[in-house]
Design a protein around this nucleic acid. Sequence first.
DNA 1: TTTAGAATATGATTTTTATCATACTTTAAA
DNA 2: TTTAAAGTATGATAAAAATCATATTCTAAA
Lengths: 228, 228
Amino acid sequence: MSISKCEQCIVRQFSSLKALTKDELLRMANCKTSYTIKKGEPIFEEGEVTNGVYCIKEGVCKMTKLSANGKDQIVKLVKSGEMLGQRSMISEEPANLSAIALEDMEVCFVPKAEIMQFFNQNNQFSLNIMRTICGDLKEADDQMVSMAQKSVKERLAQTLIYLEDTFGNNEDGSLRIQLSREELAGIIGTATESCIRLLSDFNKSELIAISGKKIIIKNKKELRKLSE
Amino acid sequence: MSISKCEQCIVRQFSSLKALTKDELLRMANCKTSYTIKKGEPIFEEGEVTNGVYCIKEGVCKMTKLSANGKDQIVKLVKSGEMLGQRSMISEEPANLSAIALEDMEVCFVPKAEIMQFFNQNNQFSLNIMRTICGDLKEADDQMVSMAQKSVKERLAQTLIYLEDTFGNNEDGSLRIQLSREELAGIIGTATESCIRLLSDFNKSELIAISGKKIIIKNKKELRKLSE
DNA sequence: TTTAGAATATGATTTTTATCATACTTTAAA
DNA sequence: TTTAAAGTATGATAAAAATCATATTCTAAA
């Protein structure tokens, strides 16, 4: 069984890990554990003590939090090349959010001890991690303002644009990432029926086209206007 | 004119600065600038390049963001002993939020160059800053879920409890921090009239007592139940 | 293939929240 | 002190969104 090198890994290219030296990467390759996560399965769940970080080699997952009324709010989507669990690791707290696979995934787990060693000895690495978390904080603040001040329609338009810009399209032009209506509602923070209804409206006014689960953005300009 | 020492400062006791050595504190005392900010005035505003951090020696301020519809959303309240502007400093971006004094304040400005030096040479200091930002991120995520999933009534109850727990009471039992109805609405993310109306309801059902701007929490237990 | 269960869709209705209008009260400046 | 402006309060109404009810379509397991 060969241990795949971290050096060529997509996560290495796009995340804080790009600051690691060859030596550090080798150390990481030796202590990491690779997992395959099936669509719908959790990588970790809210309240769990993770004791390390996860590198996403392949696939997309949703970060959710169960609210008091029993609905899952999707706080964030995370795609390949990114890392999970840094916040809990640094805060030394259990996970605040669950990470659930939206498609089949390949992830690597790197134990906390290893990461913290890099963190303490490699200044650029720790600065990178901090920048990532700072970026997350800015996004979270912005999203909070959206939730508080925008209508459901505006948030749906915004989310559709975000999905296209972040995850791209299939050959037929439809959004590459396919969410159930319930999940889409979970991102924008509304009832599933309201989300479905608004999608129908967008469809009727030819902002989007719907065929089954597939959604095609037909008039991005207008949709962007709607989202403001 | 005497330069007040940072050593005894409240900010030093409660913030990341507690990790600084005596020598570092002395350096900071020599490069800091002290300001008095009057109630209602900004410490800095959204989009401004701050080039340093602010230590809050005295007073409370609101962190706001102007939304597309022209309303100010209050993202967070910050009180004496805390620091402002770390996120922008680390991200090397302009401020994402405005900081406006809710009461007369005393703050000190410490230039970025100085902070980054501590940051690079003092591991515990940088870890402390990171923990602070990680804490902010967790709070922001949680608040986002509240905004998305809770009713205005629940959010008002939650906010009143938060205000008492965080800022305490005056001798007469009223909330120490006094917000206008508009500001309170800006925290919970609703229209000012809706906020006023719900306060009236809470008053009628004897959860709180209102006299002018003063609010007294009379039935915290019930209020806490309402907030869930 | 049949078929049960889940997901999607849509109508009807209720609840929540925003908006507009207006009155009252407090505050601070002339 | 008076007075204008801002803040607070409340009613009436409209708009937005949730909920409940059903129907339809899709999907995967028997």
